[in-house]
Nucleic acid binder design. Structure first.
Lengths: 201, 201
DNA sequence: GTCTATATCAGGATAGAC
DNA sequence: GTCTATCCTGATATAGAC
């Protein structure tokens, strides 16, 4: 069935992007990766840009799933722990995670020069930031919405920066995780100081 | 003279990268930008990869110069202020800065897939982080070296993340600057809590 | 050192059969 | 829906004159 192949192509494209980057994506290679002909790729997607566009959606869906999917079970046990876990999910040596992070980084970098990709990227990131600020809100219910959003923005920016370094081998995984964990700690301390009645200044 | 043209080609290449990215670099366009023929470009550089390699060196040199060059004059007046200024230098709408940031981001993204580039990038970043942790040290002389380095690592990661968002138009300049400023404030607060004898816990 | 002209080729995209 | 075969553009790289 068609939808099946289509999905295979997207998975293949994601793998290719993770290996060679958006820049290095060859339609031929995507086809080979999915075990189909190039013509079929063009049957399912308008052109190279179309492949990219749909692959981005695919990736951000998948990322969303493994970021917000897990918590469901252990949620409410310890919001602080959940929060930390969700941020660290991006730093794992599992191929699926590595692939997703790499592809996400690529899309980001590409979006700088490609206005079309920006919309999709912006939307995906807005959702992500929203989810994250909710999670932070669960730790600090007293914090104002804008304060939560700003924390989420800083944390996601830091995460993306660290992720790039990790993926290019400039920062060992453990160190990246530690820096991320501390960045969170730093943010939470800040929120605590600004929302608790006890302000030392 | 030859060296002159060579430099012009590098400047041109940097501009092209800033406009279209590493992937979008066309040797023809570099030549046009520098006002020379393609053949001359190949006379000075082995091939496309060679152009890229030398351009990236060129860019990281230039970045280093305008990051650490300025402070010299106003230094020591107010270390905290200097520090903030140096971090915000990357967020300006001047074409030179925008171009360098864009090219640097590209360099980073490309390095994920190109081991050769990593050396140059790693070296440049190590210098940057070193300078930054010194600057932080001037604000908090009591902080330990590793603590300073970690702060510098987090801050540079955040900066790079924010920079990418700004450059792709997903974050207005003013907001990016504000988030960066706050990220610094958050870090400094943290260092203060951990180095001052007065610890509230 | 620098140019004009051109060889060469990779890779995106399509035609048409099944 | 899927394949094989092929076209064609645009980009890298070189030859050879000045």
């Amino acid at each position: 069935m068609g939808a099946d192949r289509r999905a295979a192509i997207l998975r293949g494209a994601a793998r290719v992007i993770a290996r060679h980057g958006v820049r290095g994506l060859r339609v031929t290679e995507v086809a080979a990766e999915a075990g189909v002909s190039t013509a079929l790729v063009y049957y399912h997607f308008k052109d190279r840009a179309g492949i990219l566009h749909h692959t981005l959606e695919f990736i951000s869906d998948r990322a969303g799933r493994y970021t917000s999917g897990h918590p469901r079970r252990e949620r409410d046990s310890d919001p602080r722990r959940d929060l930390e876990r969700s941020l660290l999910l991006e730093f794992q040596d599992r191929p699926e995670v590595r692939e997703n992070s790499t592809a996400w980084g690529e899309l980001q970098a590409t979006a700088v020069f490609d206005p079309e990709l920006r919309h999709a990227l912006a939307a995906a990131r807005t959702v992500w930031i929203g989810e994250l600020s909710c999670a932070i809100g669960r730790v600090h219910p007293a914090a104002s919405a804008p304060a939560l959003t700003e924390s989420a923005e800083r944390l996601t920016a830091t995460l993306e920066g660290l992720s790039t370094r990790w993926l290019s081998g400039l920062l060992p995984l453990g160190h990246a995780r530690e820096l991320m964990r501390d960045a969170l700690a730093v943010e939470l301390t800040r929120l605590a100081r600004h929302t608790t009645p006890l302000v030392f200044d």
